[in-house]
Design a protein around this nucleic acid. Structure first.
Lengths: 217, 217
DNA sequence: CTTGCTATATATAACCA
DNA sequence: TTGGTTATATATAGCAA
């Protein structure tokens, strides 16, 4: 009838920033290890190149790379002060302008997402009330739903906007650089914004390195 | 009797390169997504910066980054303007990667929207009740609610639209400069490429610096 | 290349060392 | 910060579309 000390067992955790420092520390440490493990498995199983860079909550850099972070990153970034043809630079600028537009739109979408979420919670409450036959008692809560109408419009417009933007970008690029666009398509750097993950920690000039065979860094 | 199509269920797999081409492809696709998801969770839960670069078996670059690959990598590599690579092959890789990154992020966000959307199914119930009570005639609040259905559609369309644009761009990028890229090893038949995770990519050791917020380009 | 489904293989949140 | 232990939450291998 009695059990040995039953470990608490894994608990579901909300996908939001962990506030409890102790947990944050442990979670970061373990998940980072898990992430790197997944990465190495991907390398082994699929024989591909993977590079990961992570800055810990303390600002400490951690990295994983196969075959090596630097080479992979270099290949990816391929950025250098090297002079390129005018048309390239032009295209570069042209592209960035449009990318900026797309960025704003992504941000907008994210905002909509958050709004949607809030509305979703509201809906849950409404459903509860509704089930108790007193749907009308919750009509007051429905007021907030009016905003959804605006949201819908915004989304519709956003959709059109994005589509137009994409088309415009491609079309303009095609006009400006027909010799390139045909084979390259367009688009370039892009700043993304994900869930509000922010933080400014004091940096600790010290590094750790994990990887498969390439110690330099 | 209900015979449920018994899925094979997950099977243990040896940690060695997958040879079956079809499996390799699916596994790569899924695990890459899983890796990126883990990364985003790490970002959210611990509020840290993470950047990942992956070259698919086909040599296509995929990337994840919060807040963005470039800044994080810059911070990691932190070097002065230097080295010349001479060709835009690298730029090409970068471009492709960015397109994919954009698509990845966008897809991620849209997926979340879709999830929220499911909650929208509640609308059906609510609308039912509404109809029964015919209170819509006395409450304009419902207008916004009813419009929600359209919102769902709008979002679905948005997703499709964006995805199409992105895919169109990527499709072209994917085949860009096959004659040039081969030299870089960015593209190639993934059957005889990366046989092992060995690579003889020249690494270029350079000074490094770590800190928060000095990455630039 | 992506996605959905189902039956497992893994990753891990708490907690203790 | 890194390591076990236990009880679950997730990730995913095989298939199929």
């Amino acid at each position: 009838m009695e059990k040995r000390k039953a470990g608490t067992g894994r608990q579901k955790v909300a996908m939001e920033k962990i506030h409890k420092k102790s947990n944050l520390q442990v979670t970061f440490c373990k998940r980072r290890a898990g992430l790197f493990k997944k990465a190495s498995e991907l390398c082994t199983l699929c024989g591909v190149e993977v590079a990961i860079v992570v800055f810990s909550p303390a600002g400490k850099p951690f990295a994983f790379g196969h075959p090596e972070v630097n080479s992979i990153v270099d290949k990816f970034l391929a950025r250098n002060p090297h002079r390129i043809t005018g048309s390239h630079q032009l295209m570069e600028a042209h592209r960035n302008a449009n990318v900026r537009e797309l960025n704003m739109q992504l941000t907008f979408v994210l905002e909509q997402l958050e709004m949607e979420r809030k509305k979703g919670q509201l809906l849950d409450q409404i459903r509860e009330a509704t089930r108790r036959q007193s749907w009308w008692e919750s009509s007051i809560d429905l007021l907030g739903l009016i905003e959804l109408e605006q949201l819908r419009e915004a989304m519709a417009e956003l959709k059109k906007s994005v589509a137009e933007q994409a088309n415009k970008v491609m079309a303009e690029s095609a006009n400006s650089f027909p010799f390139l666009v045909n084979r390259m398509g367009i688009v370039g750097s892009f700043e993304n914004k994900f869930n509000g993950v922010s933080g400014d920690y004091s940096s600790v000039p010290r590094g750790n390195y994990f990887g498969h065979g390439q110690g330099s860094f």
